[in-house]
Design a protein around this nucleic acid. Structure first.
Length: 420
RNA sequence: GGGGAGGUGGCUGAGUGGUCGAAAGCACCCGCCUGCUAAGCGGGUAGGGGGUGUAAAGCUCCCUCGAGGGUUCGAAUCCCUCCCUUCCCGCCA
């Protein structure tokens, strides 16, 4: 969230950022309630101060004639505070609904059409024959099964079978190994159900409740990304600056309702209610967050390069970047069969927006007052669509799929999927 | 699931109605002392919010002893609800 203080001092900047993001922002209502809140709070606190003073006198003198005044003061302080608290709750709720501002390097734009490709790696492969889609190939090879998933769970679910499931496991191992051994991340295994406080910390609540699966009758939600539990790992903590940046990598399944995506990507292994992801999360100081964000993006890109997949890096424009993000890159891998790019990673930095919600702070130096940390995350990578890109990029004219060099050590001797 | 114990500052741990945001110890910081280090001596060290201030500093007030309610002029201390930790029993991958 943005702090009340920041909104007080920069109401126009907040309004402008929200408008360019295409998000509503109740700035006027916040400023109004802020005045009301402070009025009642001030009254409550001054009354309380008088009461405390007189109460001390009473403790000494036991002068019963003071009691009636004390009682009145207590009543006044209590009722004023009750009003102040009620207004503050309303205010806090509105604050959670104000979108983040964005970095000056973010292009202004309304839709994905105004996103900017900042770099590309590799080129579209020339297969020498008509490329088939991953779902066509996958079903033919028996490594992807959508029909049976419908029977078990419904649409937007899938089974990976045999060498398909093995491919997913190989990718997970490969990515975790690279990020832990070469990029310096600490591996984390986390709860896959989290409470509302955690969801609020990463800004999935209150605005995006309809995107989440909820456990009936309990304050537990299925995570839409490991970003939620891992970022919240340090909630309510004050960290030491010298232990930062903190870097975690976490493999976890993710669940999303895909509300609002009806009819979109219904075909194929692209947009599912459940998918796997290796997630990168950093908690950094204010000074280093932009650099660390660039590095995290490169760490994710490194996986694509090692897999030999053509991709681009796209800088999201204001209208396409989202409520909480301060700056965001998407990594899009080329899928020759689909003849389009697939978003395999989304890397974002949040400034102190999430840290403020989750109350993650650090002490810049010994004895200094705590500051809010900066949080960063990105997929490194999403498994589902990476598998699509691999299948379509490494397909052969005979319908079999070559295993990328980097994955061979993880495939238990399988070098060609479909050969058996 | 049943029963017992317990949640206090960075840590350990006192504190059962007022003078307690909180003894003491540890840790850490600043001085002094000292060939150097250690020891010793003195001082300091929680977080949040409001007001004032151009701002920083400062001053001042309020809140916070797991969370939320309640009793009381006054609550870390009494009462209620919830959460969590731990031990014993039961169950279980």
């Amino acid at each position: 969230m943005l702090s009340l203080e920041f909104i007080r001092k920069n109401p126009d900047a907040v309004r402008r950022a929200a408008q360019l993001k295409g998000e509503p922002a109740p700035v006027d209502e916040i400023l109004r309630l802020d005045g009301v809140w402070r009025g009642h709070l001030h009254k409550a606190e001054t009354t309380k101060a008088e009461q405390n003073e007189l109460s001390k006198q009473f403790a000494k003198s036991r002068d019963e004639s003071l009691k009636e005044r004390l009682r009145q003061m207590a009543d006044t302080a209590k009722s004023e505070l009750a009003v102040a608290d009620a207004v503050k709750r309303e205010l806090d709720d509105l604050l959670l609904r104000v979108p983040n501002v964005f970095h000056e390097s973010v292009p202004v734009g309304e839709s994905e059409a105004e996103n900017v490709v900042v770099r590309e790696w590799g080129s579209k492969p020339d297969l020498g024959f008509a490329a088939r889609t991953h779902y066509d190939l996958g079903e033919a090879l028996g490594i992807l099964d959508f029909e049976r998933a419908v029977k078990i769970a419904g649409s937007r679910f899938a089974f990976l079978v045999g060498e398909g499931a093995r491919l997913e496991r190989a990718l997970v191992q490969f990515m975790l190994d690279v990020h832990t051994r070469e990029h310096g991340y600490t591996e984390v295994w986390s709860p896959l159900l989290v409470n509302s406080a955690a969801m609020t910390g990463t800004a999935n609540l209150p605005k995006f409740a309809d995107q989440l699966f909820k456990v009936e009758g309990r304050d537990l939600w299925l995570i839409p990304t490991a970003e939620v539990p891992v970022t919240n790992y340090h909630r309510e903590e004050i960290l030491d600056a010298d232990q930062m940046p903190i870097k975690y990598v976490c493999y976890a399944p993710s669940w999303r309702t895909e509300a609002g995506a009806a009819g979109k990507d219904t075909r194929g292994f692209i947009r599912l209610h459940q998918f796997s992801k290796v997630e990168l999360v950093k908690v950094t100081t204010a000074e280093t967050s932009l650099d660390e964000f660039e590095r995290l993006t490169r760490d994710a890109e490194d996986i694509l390069q090692r897999l030999g997949l053509h991709y681009n890096v796209m800088l999201m424009c204001t209208g396409d970047m989202g409520f909480a993000q301060y700056k965001k890159y998407d990594l899009n891998a080329w899928a020759p069969g689909l003849d389009r790019y697939l978003e395999v990673s989304s890397c974002s930095t949040f400034n102190d927006f999430q840290a403020m919600r989750a109350n993650i702070r650090y002490r810049p130096e010994r004895g200094a007052p705590p500051r809010f940390a900066h949080t960063i995350n990105g997929s490194g990578l999403a498994l589902t669509r990476t598998i699509d890109a691999i299948i379509e990029t490494y397909q052969r004219s005979d319908g079999m799929i070559a295993v990328p060099e980097a994955l061979k050590p993880y495939m238990g001797g399988v070098e060609l999927i479909g050969a058996r």
